[in-house]
Amino acid sequence: MTEPREIERIVLMALDEDAPWGDLTGETLIPAAATATADLVAREPGVFSGARVVDTAFRLVDPAIAVEVLAADGDRFAAGDVLARVHGPARGILRAERVALNLVQRMSGVATLTARYVDAVAGTGARIVDTRKTTPGLRSLERQAVRDGGGRNHRRSLSDAVMAKDNHLAVLTAGGTDLATALREARERMPHTAHLEVEVDRLDQVEPVLAGGADTIMLDNFRIDDLRAGVELIAGRAIVEASGGVNLDSVAAIAATGVDVISVGALTHSARALDLGLDVVIEAPDDATRGSA
């Protein structure tokens, strides 16, 4: 679960961006005493993520707004479902609307796409994980959305693990450094709690990387047959991660090779915002209808 103070930091930044000197429309058009009730409605099916974000956006604008979130993070919903209801000062609701929608649509889009990948590899034992290919400033929310969709998180930042990728190896080999030796020396400098992962793009790199003490070996952009061969070669001596060019058409075949982890940048860099709307509930004498806010 994302820390409440982290959610508040992101929401406050978004609110300040959206209304730096107040909401000119609301303050000139909407009576100060006006109240409203509005529903967060799904226009399409998906997986919900962002319950705390919705609550925080309205609460920070006006604590008098009552927020009832009707869906839990990770819940699957259908088009037409009401996911939350807000009631209170109309100016505050209208001011918070866009920020709340932008964030929950983004998070629910990531969760929905993640769930499709997770469903595609069900029964194989492979974990679907995210990458650092996130929207700047929104990483913590997008990582939560991946978890809400049933996926797992890779390292959060460059500070969390030693991960030697192709460019790191290129710098080392250009200087004539033996790969296994370089990795062993790095291991000696690492904190004892840190994890060492190394990316390879050829099978002949596997043994030197194992000799260097890698905890995880990432097989990057390998063909299916080579992935299977890599799993057999590593033979449980390290965690095996597949990465590069993973999509919904290929992920099941990748999982069937026996890899432990499949990292998918598309979960965050290519997720489409889900279509959700905030509809003001208009109470008529004999009926209740909705008008889009």
Rank of each mutant, 00 (worst) to 15 (best):
G92H: 02
V209A: 05
R272E: 15
L103T: 04
V54A: 12
L101M: 03
M218G: 08
I65S: 12
V251R: 06
D16I: 00
E188D: 13
R143C: 06
L203G: 14
A182H: 02
P208W: 04
R91S: 10
G88E: 08
I65T: 10
G230M: 03
S159G: 15
I65R: 08
A161C: 12
T193M: 14
V86I: 03
H192A: 13
V54N: 08
V67G: 09
D55Q: 13
T135Q: 13
A19H: 10
A33D: 15
A33N: 14
R237V: 03
S243N: 13
S157E: 12
S243Y: 03
A145S: 12
I262H: 08
A211D: 13
V198S: 08
P45M: 01
T216S: 15
A115I: 00
E97P: 02
L94M: 11
S292H: 08
M1K: 06
T134N: 14
A38V: 01
L94W: 02
L276A: 06
T134S: 14
T216L: 14
N221T: 07
L138C: 10
V53M: 06
V118Q: 14
T268A: 13
D275H: 02
A57Y: 00
R59P: 06
G26I: 01
S49K: 00
A242Y: 04
A255C: 12
Q144S: 14
I224A: 13
F58K: 01
L158K: 09
G74P: 04
A266D: 15
N167Y: 11
A79P: 13
T114G: 09
G80N: 07
A253S: 15
G50R: 01
A255G: 14
E241W: 04
G88K: 00
A38N: 08
A214G: 13
R116M: 11
D215C: 07
T37R: 10
L203K: 11
T181I: 00
V110K: 03
R202I: 01
H87F: 07
T289V: 10
A51K: 03
V69M: 05
R290M: 04
V121N: 10
T28Y: 14
A96P: 05
G175K: 01
G137W: 03
E3G: 15
D18K: 00
P45S: 10
A84V: 01
A293L: 05
R5W: 12
G176H: 03
G265A: 08
D130M: 02
D220F: 01
V67T: 13
L15K: 07
A72C: 12
F77K: 01
P4K: 09
P89A: 10
V11N: 09
G123T: 03
L169P: 07
V82R: 03
A293I: 00
L203R: 10
E68V: 05
L169A: 05
D225Y: 04
T173P: 09
F58C: 07
P89W: 00
L169S: 07
W21I: 09
P20I: 03
D286L: 03
